[in-house]
Structure formats: C-alpha cells, structure tokens
Design a protein around this nucleic acid. Structure first.
Length: 412
DNA sequence: TCTGGGGTCCTAGGACCC
DNA sequence: TCTGGGGTCCTAGGACCC
C-alpha cells in the first residue's frame, strides 16, 4: 500500500490566528491585508519579528529581524504583541479537526503538521487536500497551505511552493520541474551558512546540488552533506511518528536589564529551574545532564553542562547543579540572557532509592509532587518560593503556557 | 535600550582504557 | 630510542528548524 503524506501549514500563523480572533470579536480591520507583524516588547528587549503579513513581506520584512529594522523598512507598520495562549489553543483545535480526516497526525511545530493516509490514490489525495484547505477556511476563518507527496520532506517542500491558501503536490516524478528549479536555500536544512558554502562552489539551485558529485558534497559537508544531497533527490526515509520521544527540555530568557552579580543570576536561574523541572515532571521524565547557558551583553554565548551520577526530576537537585555550572562558567561579563536545559532523559521509574540520593532530596521529591499538584490545579504562580515574595523577579520564567507544547523537529 | 525562545543533531577534541 | 591505534565517553560549540 502506497502512503500519502500531507503537510499542513497555517499561513502567517500568529497573524492569521489573531485575525480570526479579532473577527470573532467583531473587529473590522483585516491584519492580513496591511503591513503588520507580531513582535515582542522592545522595552523588555524582546523586540524581534515573530510573524509577518504578506504585505509586510513585500516591504522585505523578515521574521527574526529587529522591530527597529522592520519599522525602518515600513514606517506605518502595525506591530502587535504575541498572545501565546491563543496560539496554543488555535493550534490544538486545528489539530483536533485534522484528526477527523485521519488518526495519523504528526505535530511538527505549533503551526505545522503531517497527515498520513494509506488507503487513497493520488487523485483522491489531491481532491482531499483541496477539501481540507477549504473546510479549514470555512470553519476557522484563516487559510492554510497543503502539500502532498509520498514522504514528509516532499510534502513539506510542496507546502512551501506558493502561498497563501494553496494546495500543491510534489511527487517524486515531479521534482525536476518543481524542486530542482528552486534556489538551493529553499531546500529544507539548507540555512545561511550552508547556502553560502554551496554558492561558493557554484551550486545555486536544488537541481545544481542534486547534480553535483556526491563524493564532493560528502567530503565537504560530512553527514549534513549526505542529508541535503538526498533531500535534493526527494529522498527521505524518516518514519511517521505520532509522538516522537522528547530528547531535552529547557527554558531561557533575555533579561530586562543586564545582570552583573552572582546572587541575582542565581535567583533568575531558580525561576528557570522551577519552570523547566516542572515541565520535565509533567512529561514523567527524569534527566541526567544539566546544562546552563549565558549570553553576555556583547552577544557572546557560552554553555556548560554536566552529567550526573543519577537521574533526577527534583527541582532542588537540578538547581544545585545549575548554580555550580553557572559559577564555573560565568566570566563576570554583564549578562543579557540565561538559559538552562535538561537532557539525557528517561521515563521516571516508579521510585527506587538510589545510593547517590540523600534523605533531603527524597523529601524534596515529595515537595515537588505537592507543588506540582497545586500548580496544575490553581495555576503556575499559585504557589511560589519565599525568595520571590517581595522580589522584582518572576517566580517561574520562560516558556509557552503550560500545555501541549509544539514539538520542534529539525530532522523530519 | 537593534538582535527571542523552543528544540534536534552533529563534530571536534580531550580523557581514558586496552 | 621510540611513541601505536582502536574504541568509548564526555563536553563545548555550531548549524539548522519553526
């Protein structure tokens, strides 16, 4: 049985969802028809473009650029702050709707997913793709792109062809006309650095890459070369997984001002640890590797990690290690951003005491469980640590609303 | 107050073992 | 006097994605 994979991508997702919401609320304006972006607070140093409308794109505004730059390109640009709760809700209700077509839905990001069909031919798939696209617009009030092919890579490339509100195919026998003509940077996994390397070797299109000597690409770019060479030929042997296992969990935050003392840094690290460790426990996972990262005011970036002798999901254990790592890592440069990340995850075993755990950490496990229960019932900040009671710092820092998070995947 | 935050995967180099 | 080489594990940093 031949598989058909569809890629569903919400056009200008954050803006589309905001538009649909405003429409429900009775607002007249259409954000999508004017130059508009979603961007963070410049005052809090989060001022970058997270999403842009198509008219904004025509002014050469790119996601990721600073709002200052964006405003220079388009002085009457409308800037709205993000509403992540809305996006998480919108994303979930779209996915629930898509599940009425097939149970096989793989979440790729907050605004993208793959659908798998096994009992359908090409013609039927194209009809169904158009139908899904139109029904989503009727039902939710925003547009999506649908890409159809026989594997995830080509379905995604098809979905990127022409936007918005389009349904494209890119089957293996169409790659010469549809894929090879594109600039090489439009191939999935060819980013800024790889693009400039490829161009320096005279490789400008995806077709050029496909027709370059494989050994050359492999020598120059190692396993990444193998990956993109295969992608250029439309080859992708990744499997369809409904819920790929989580490999790491972390939170980071750009601070409102540069932090210059160790004590303040430790307090912020505690609030990050509270958030990350909570999320870890919600996944019923424990970690063995703890890592801390620092971005200084000059945008220098450093990180340090440590493998523990045991697996843990305990806020206190993790925090102790976070502080040690920070103290070893910090070079006294003013700190712009701090982050922590937990990896080498495994599912938490039903409690078996291990010899590296002291009595206090066992007590803290019980404490964590109790705190989690209260937070899940009454909200994240219903219970906070004493140090945060009269402090200007948030008791939990980082992250999307506590919900089904988007799973970001770099490899399909 | 120009430059966010969530991820995955890979590589190079050092430590250590036989 | 010379100075191996394979393997594994660990860490730091970088590329890429949305």
């Amino acid at each position: 049985m031949v598989e058909i994979i569809m890629h569903v991508d919400v056009n200008s997702a954050f803006l589309s969802w905001t538009y649909a919401y405003e429409k429900q609320m009775g607002l007249e304006r259409n954000l999508l028809n004017i130059p508009s972006v979603i961007g963070g607070s410049e005052k809090n140093r989060h001022g970058i473009v997270l999403a842009r409308s198509i008219p904004a794109k025509k002014h050469k505004i790119q996601t990721g650029m600073s709002l200052m730059e964006a405003r220079q390109l388009c002085p009457n640009l409308l800037i709205l702050h993000p509403n992540y709760k809305l996006y998480v809700k919108a994303s979930k209700s779209l996915r629930d709707y898509l599940k009425t077509y097939t149970p096989d839905v793989e979440v790729f990001s907050i605004d993208e997913c793959f659908l798998r069909f096994t009992d359908i031919n090409r013609q039927e798939a194209v009809e169904l793709g158009h139908k899904i696209k139109d029904r989503v617009k009727e039902k939710f009030g925003y547009t999506i792109n649908v890409g159809i092919s026989e594997n995830k890579l080509l379905a995604k490339q098809a979905g990127d062809l022409e936007k918005p509100n389009k349904c494209h195919t890119m089957f293996m026998d169409e790659i010469k006309e549809k894929l090879w003509v594109l600039p090489v940077e439009e191939l999935f996994m060819v980013g800024r650095k790889t693009k400039s390397k490829l161009k320096s070797w005279g490789i400008y299109t995806i077709g050029d890459l496909a027709n370059t000597d494989y050994k050359f690409i492999l020598t120059m770019l190692k396993s990444h070369g193998r990956l993109i060479y295969n992608y250029a030929w439309g080859r992708d042997d990744s499997t369809f997984k409904e819920r790929p296992p989580m490999k790491s969990v972390g939170n980071s935050s750009t601070l409102k001002f540069d932090v210059r003392d160790r004590e303040t840094a430790h307090i912020i690290l505690l609030s990050l640890t509270e958030m990350t460790a909570w999320r870890l426990r919600e996944e019923k996972m424990s970690c063995q590797v703890v890592s801390v990262s620092i971005k200084d005011k000059y945008f220098g970036y450093k990180s340090r990690q440590r493998k523990l002798m045991y697996f843990t999901d305990c806020t206190r254990d993790i925090y102790i290690n976070v502080c040690k790592l920070f103290d070893e890592l910090w070079d006294e440069k003013p700190i712009r951003a701090l982050g922590i990340s937990l990896s080498n995850l495994e599912f938490s075993k039903s409690k078996q005491i291990n010899i590296f755990q002291d009595e206090l950490s066992l007590k803290n496990e019980t404490l964590d469980k109790t705190v989690d229960k209260i937070r899940n019932k009454y909200g994240a900040e219903s219970i906070i640590r004493g140090v945060f009671a009269n402090s200007p710092f948030k008791p939990l820092l980082g992250g999307y609303p506590h919900d089904e998070y988007p799973d970001m995947r770099s490899i399909l």
